[in-house]
Simulated assay, not measured.
Amino acid sequence: MNTDRRRILGPQDARIPDLGISTNANNSMDIDPAGFAAEKRSSDIQKMFMKTNFISNANGSSYIEHGDTIVQVSVFGPRPIKSSFIEQASFSVECRFLPHLKQDDALDIDGDHHSNPNGRTGLSYTEHKISSFVESCLVPSILLDKYPKSTIDLHITVIEHNSESTSLTNLVNWITVASSLALVDSGVEVRDIVTAGHIISDGQHVILDPIEPVSKRTDCLVCFMNLKNEIVGIWVDGDLDNLDTAIEECNKMSRTIRGNINSYLLST
């Protein structure tokens, strides 16, 4: 029996969770430690780890590790609602950072991470911005009319994010991918799986899935439904000289991620 009340110990029969094996990524997913150096090819994408169906009380769940980024997503619903009849389900997204994580000060216009008077209750401005963006990207993919008088709630938890080495747009890229994967795991009917691509540009070079931030850069995130090559969301941070080129490069990354998701889903 534990007599040290200053510590909270785990159960005696605790064991390391079995998160499965990494997805069958191809060679293009190899990590290039050179960052934005000339040696890094524009087609290089970092390795990622994905896992689904690991939260027992959720209808669907996903877990993604990508570099310094760790994201967990859970889906609850479709659940019936006690209100007047509505022809299609309502859909909501809520993103939260764990308390120890530093959030992006550039988005926090009031300088107070805990105040967001015009947004969702209890969310910081950064959390509200991410929640709204992901929600707008996923809504076109969900067949909401299949679930009248229902609600579908998606909860995102950012477990790890190093804001000094990874940009916010890159984080949102993987939040979007994890959210779409959780929707598929929940069994909610969707038109397509939403995936995303992220690039940075210094005016001369365009790099996919950057490892390290670059000064005087432009970040561009584009979310796609690749089945019909539809764009469902764009997030640009900085001055972008050539939007068409940025979209084309983001589409390359999006299709690479989609191929890995397809491989993972088929294997499970």
Rank of each mutant, 00 (worst) to 15 (best):
I8N: 11
L9P: 11
P11D: 10
D13F: 12
R15Q: 09
I21W: 10
T23D: 11
N24G: 12
N26Q: 13
N27H: 13
M29I: 10
P33G: 14
F36G: 10
K40Y: 12
S42D: 09
S42L: 10
K47W: 13
T52C: 04
N53I: 05
I55C: 02
A58W: 13
N59H: 03
S61W: 08
G67N: 09
A89E: 05
S90G: 03
F91Y: 11
V93P: 00
V93N: 03
E94R: 14
C95T: 15
C95R: 07
C95A: 15
R96P: 01
L98C: 11
I109G: 10
D110E: 07
G111I: 08
D112E: 12
N118I: 15
Y125S: 09
Y125I: 15
T126H: 11
E127P: 11
L138D: 04
L144Y: 08
K146I: 14
Y147R: 05
P148I: 06
N173S: 03
S179E: 05
L181M: 07
V190Y: 04
V194I: 12
H198S: 01
D209E: 08
P213I: 00
D219Q: 01
C220V: 13
K228F: 08
I231K: 00
I234Y: 03
D239E: 12
D239Y: 14
T245G: 01
I247W: 06
N251F: 09
I257K: 00
L265F: 14
